[in-house]
Amino acid sequence: MINRVSFNENEMTYRLSGEIDHHSAKTARELIDSLIQQKKPSVLKLDFSDVSFMDSSGIGLIMGRYRMMHLYGGELCVVNVPDQLEKIMFLSGLGALGVIEKKGEAYETVE
């Protein structure tokens, strides 16, 4: 799993990749949390473009980061959710939390 991180003013985008399960979520969680603590971004974007599989461990990962960002007075945003992950994302109730942006809405488009 190679994850990439980028910064844009107070916004941090963390691009996850590969399969997210109980095994891989642990590493991602530790990396993201240490970055949040170092950089204190006001917005954390979790980009799922390159995630091919996710089970409920991914939900735990998102919920945990959601709580952490709120603790710092920031916001969490889940972007670029591939079709195959929609079912689990919406089953979890994350849809109601309003943190999921639909595909293609993650980046500003210029008309």
């Binding site: 409920s56 461990s57 735990g60 919920m63 079912k87 089953l91």
Partner: peptide, 12 residues
């Protein structure tokens, strides 16, 4: 950070 959704996911 176990979400408690394991069986719910299996069921759906």
């Amino acid at each position: 950070e176990r979400a408690g959704l394991g069986f719910a996911v299996m069921q759906s």
